[in-house]
């Protein structure tokens, strides 16, 4: 069975990688560069028997196979980052031979060079914002004016009326929680965007994927020059929203997975 050419990403032809790749040890093959003109493909040779279209869906659903390989993919790209900008490829892109890799580089040289210039000196940071509904609900019960008014009325109302008012108060509180989450997400995104050169908003992950009991209210990616700037914004927002049960998870720097040219996305 012949080999395929696994593509990790694309970088500048003149990139200095030192021993970043010779010391790589992971579940995917050791990377090397295929240079064509001004751009270079970061590739590795994989067995086409393993990376077979018919087998792939099964393998992708096997965490024992997938997770070490996805980690290796990320590791290779991370090792390339100190050398200069990288256009990351999605996991599992395999070309039939070196000629096909070169054809891709040559026919997309302009787009790739432009993308590398845009990414130069910039990193992707991820921000996930979580709201703890219990804490937020308790906080709004005390601070939301219409709800607080109803609570006062309920305290002195006869039983039947109190029951009706209670239902109304609960509904108002639910609405206040949702509105707070929407506003918090929008304001947070605006604050992060203000220090970023480009932004991408992804759908919030459901709790089963995030593994957290809190509600994810923002799943953003930001392309920027300063990691400190985004950390500062996160800290400011955490202080402002901390009492309402909102937390900010900043990750990165990542290879700019969310900022590849739109024609390749």
């Amino acid at each position: 069975m012949s080999d395929g050419w696994y593509l990790y990403g694309v970088t500048h032809a003149g990139v200095e990688l030192g021993d970043a790749y010779t010391t790589f040890d992971g579940a995917l093959p050791r990377p090397f560069l295929v240079i064509d003109g001004e751009v270079a493909a970061i590739t590795g040779k994989v067995s086409l028997e393993e990376f077979d279209e018919a087998r792939l869906p099964g393998l992708l659903n096997d965490p024992g196979w997938l997770i070490p390989r996805a980690t290796a993919h990320q590791d290779v790209l991370e090792r390339a980052l100190p050398g200069g900008p990288v256009v990351p490829f999605r996991f599992g892109t395999v070309y039939r031979d070196e000629r096909a890799v070169r054809t891709f580089l040559r026919s997309n040289a302009h787009e790739l060079t432009t993308a590398l210039e845009r990414l130069s000196g910039r990193v992707e940071m991820g921000v996930k914002v979580f709201a703890d509904r219990d804490v937020l609900t308790a906080a709004l019960r005390d601070t939301d004016a219409p709800v607080a008014e109803l609570e006062t009325e309920i305290a002195s109302a006869p039983e039947g009326r109190a029951y009706m008012l209670r239902r109304r108060a609960d509904r108002l509180l639910d609405e206040a929680v949702q509105q707070f989450e929407q506003e918090c997400a929008a304001e947070s995104h605006a604050a992060f965007s203000a220090v970023a050169d480009d932004v991408a908003v992804n759908p919030p992950q459901p709790a089963e994927l995030s593994g957290r009991s809190e509600e994810m209210i923002l799943n953003g990616a930001y392309l920027l020059q300063s990691v400190e700037a985004i950390n500062d914004v996160a800290q400011e927002l955490a202080q402002r929203y901390g009492g309402s049960g909102v937390t900010f998870d900043v990750t990165g720097p990542w290879p700019p997975y969310n900022f590849v040219p739109s024609e390749f996305a």
Binding site: G4, G9, V10, L48, F51, D52, E53, L56, P57, L60, L66, I67, A70, T71, H73, Q74, V87, P88, F89, R90, F91, G92, T93, V94, Y95, R96, A100, T103, F104, G126, K128, N202, Q205, L209, S210, G211, R212, D249, T251, W254, P255, Y257, N258, V260, P261, F264, A265
Partner: peptide, 28 residues
């Protein structure tokens, strides 16, 4: 979370091509 974040990015983002390639996760 980091692991999930990684899988979320590596599998769902990045350059995704069709055409002269033998395999792409995007096709699955």
């Amino acid at each position: 979370i980091t692991l999930l974040e990684l899988v979320d990015r590596v599998l769902n983002k990045g350059v995704s091509l069709s055409g002269d390639i033998t395999l792409s996760v995007a096709d699955v």
